[in-house]
Design a protein around this nucleic acid. Structure first.
Length: 271
DNA sequence: CGCCAGGACGCCC
DNA sequence: GGGCGTCATGGC
């Protein structure tokens, strides 16, 4: 990744990034595509820092109205710019299916999101579809002045007071998550450092967090790339292409491989 | 209208 | 430990 400062913008060159593929692939739910004269433009936030970012061509981007300090301190990390995705894709391409998946959507990167936001987002995601997940998270943030509420803000809520979310049976799970995180029974920063099976177990102490949601929090919110969320789509991939198991050589970065496979299988024509 | 959604829980055996 | 009905809501 190369960047340069131009006025109030940061100009970025990174061949292994596509905004549509990365910001609208079901790993993050708060990025919105807005009309622009560029190839595409998204606006969103990491924690309390807002960003508008445009793709001006393949591998070229504008981070609008961003200080070099914010770019270096926050966005390089968020977009995982210090990881060489070309190298990862070369590794994955040893496997035939993965090679096709990487070639289908090679601009996917694993965002380094906030663990708490991920926990709440993926509790909401269970037995739900992506457009409705986004709607619920929109209503949640709108209710707190357009900022994602931290555990202390969510802690006083009850399933009844959260009725405005229209999140259904998930509201009670959100309350339990807020209580356990705010109360210290679940310290997300500590969980992020645990051996992965201990981290899984710690997350699953929260009501509404099962195997799938725990893997998503580990992968998307704690950058544990060996976490491997299995949803209905990935289940189809495993049955169809990996009846003898997912290849060992890719397991350490399996979560990133999973992102390519998820996008690939969802966009494959029915057969 | 019915089927499904980036599942988990509670109960049954 | 595995199998199954249930859980709200709404996109399609």
């Amino acid at each position: 990744m190369d960047y340069s400062v131009k006025g109030n913008d940061i100009i970025v060159s990174e061949p292994d990034l596509d905004l549509d593929e990365t910001l609208d692939c079901g790993q993050a739910f708060r990025w919105k595509k807005i009309p622009s004269d560029y190839q595409c433009t998204y606006t969103g936030r990491f924690l309390n820092t807002p960003l508008t970012v445009s793709q001006t061509g393949n591998g070229s981007f504008i981070f609008h109205d961003t200080t070099e300090n914010d770019f270096v301190q926050k966005w390089i990390d968020y977009f995982d710019f210090n990881t060489d995705y070309s190298e990862l894709k070369r590794l994955f391409s040893e496997d035939d299916t993965l090679r096709k998946a990487c070639s289908f959507a090679g601009g996917i990167r694993l965002l380094r999101q906030d663990s708490w936001e991920c926990l709440i987002s993926f509790i909401i995601s269970q037995n739900n579809n992506i457009p409705r997940i986004k709607g619920i998270i929109d209503r949640l943030c709108e209710h707190y002045d357009s900022a994602f509420p931290d555990a202390a803000m969510l802690y006083p809520e009850t399933p009844d007071s959260l009725a405005f979310l229209r999140s259904g049976f998930r509201a009670k799970y959100l309350c339990d998550a807020a209580q356990k995180v705010f109360g210290g029974q679940c310290d997300l920063n500590a969980v992020a450092e645990m051996p992965i099976d201990d981290a899984r177990a710690a997350l699953k102490n929260i009501k509404g967090v099962g195997p799938k949601v725990a893997e998503c929090v580990l992968l998307f919110g704690m950058h544990r790339t060996d976490a491997f969320p299995v949803d209905v789509w990935i289940k189809r991939v495993l049955e169809k292409y990996y009846p003898d198991g997912f290849p060992d050589f890719a397991k350490a970065e399996g979560g990133i491989a999973q992102q390519y496979l998820f996008h690939y299988i969802r966009n494959l024509p029915d057969d």
